[in-house]
Design a protein around this nucleic acid. Structure first.
Lengths: 243, 243
DNA sequence: CGGACAATTGATCTACCTCAAAATTGGTGG
DNA sequence: CCACCAATTTTGAGGTAGATCAATTGTCCG
């Protein structure tokens, strides 16, 4: 289990995450942890960066969940990803000037803002770290591809099952899930916006999953009763997460 | 107009592409163009890398089109992206060991294979080039996000219009389209696999678009008659392409 | 000219949507 | 601890975008 991020060493979470992807030298570790960071606590649904913004800092998620989304005409919304502690959901902005979507806190969340300038300096001093961040971005792109396949060619039932598999593995990797159960703050309406469905249909899909003894969702907690059946229903292969 | 890639300097296309993203020094340019490259001509639909492979080289597209796709159960296929000359569609593999999808020639195509090893060396010698490649990957991730929004929350008509906008701009940027017309080798069935639709429905959408005087598709060529109307129908904003 | 493949059309079906109302839940202040 | 409010979840009924199935008609190319 991963302890909550400490206020004294908030960036420890960052080194731990990057260290899980690649070997870090003591020097690199030291450099990361002495990055300047501005800690803030955010309310649920509070925007961090908006579509069209040109941010000058990145956001390391320390506690709580975040999500990315895009609003389009007639009040339609598509959720693009969910994020857990250790993620830097707007790493993209480090090399691309303007945001093509928005990022917000999903639950109450604690984040550390790190200036782009400092991160760029870091990658100049330690090319190895640049490569690690690159890899991080590529892994995320892989997740987007799976999301595309799900939306384009999978049934509602398969899509939802797939999302549950992905989320469980991501949560487990940071110690926020174990024994097939985890905190689960996503409402059915939000699930719908993530999976390109209506809230009513999500409700029916969940009912069916309960009927099949796959999962239970109650009081903001999820229990997966039959991981294997869930994985099978979703045709899920978690390799792309590279955890 | 961009002349076809010459056999004597095939990587000139690469420097031109990267140069359009960032300033390159003469030294960097020189280093890129002396990368070892193995030129090959591929038949339509010939796979370049397959789902699950662990390639040791990247592929620079010199002539023709390529596409990425993923096959899932019951013969379903989702096309993830289309690529034009100058693209390196499997750059991902440079930092991620195994492929989570396949890459193939879409038309007859000429490609240059560059060993990962040489590319890595290059990025070590020229950290600036590493950053450029990073940026390239992030731009592609942005395209994936737009694709997700389209599949999740847009109608068939909007989706197809959006794809046409994106493709036209990409082709124009490499000199393969101008005056709102371009070579267009995509069949309706392939369009369907890209947009998460059936071929029959794609046919009806195209018919409607013709009826609205937006486009004509005939004999492998596309003409856009009303770019503004197309952009409007698609709610298209090409900023994310960063061309 | 013939064969294969792609485009087109018609008819029917269905997964998922929209609208609307009722039941449940969780949080809040008194 | 309870009453109340707002937000969710759940259920029903009916509608529709887009799927599937099955011909038919181009179109291209060897």
């Amino acid at each position: 289990m991963m302890p909550p991020a400490s206020d004294h060493q908030p960036l420890g979470l960052f080194t731990r995450r990057l260290g899980s992807i690649a070997q870090l030298s003591a020097e690199e570790r030291q450099a990361i942890e002495s990055l300047p960071a501005n800690i803030r606590v955010l309310k649920p649904n509070q925007d961090i960066v908006r579509d069209g913004d040109k941010p000058s800092q990145c956001c390391l998620l320390l506690e709580g969940w975040a999500f990315r989304y895009k609003l389009i005409g007639e009040g339609r919304r598509q959720i693009l990803s969910f994020h857990v502690p250790g993620d830097v959901p707007d790493l993209t902005a480090l090399h691309i000037p303007s945001m093509d979507h928005s990022l917000a806190a999903f639950t109450k969340a604690k984040v550390a803002f790190i200036p782009h300038e400092s991160l760029r300096e870091l990658t100049v001093r330690f090319p190895n770290l640049a490569a690690v961040l690159f890899r991080e971005a590529l892994i995320e792109a892989a997740a987007f591809r799976q999301w595309i396949v799900a939306l384009g060619r999978r049934s509602a039932y398969e899509r939802v099952a797939r999302l549950f598999c992905e989320l469980y593995l991501k949560l487990e990797a940071v110690g926020l899930a174990s024994m097939y159960s985890c905190h689960f703050p996503i409402t059915q309406g939000e699930l719908a916006d993530a999976m390109g469905l209506s809230n009513v249909h999500v409700n029916r899909v969940l009912k069916e999953m309960r009927g099949n003894d796959l999962i239970t969702l109650k009081g903001g907690a999820q229990v997966i009763h039959a991981w294997d059946k869930l994985v099978h229903a979703a045709e899920f292969d978690g390799t792309y997460l590279h955890l």
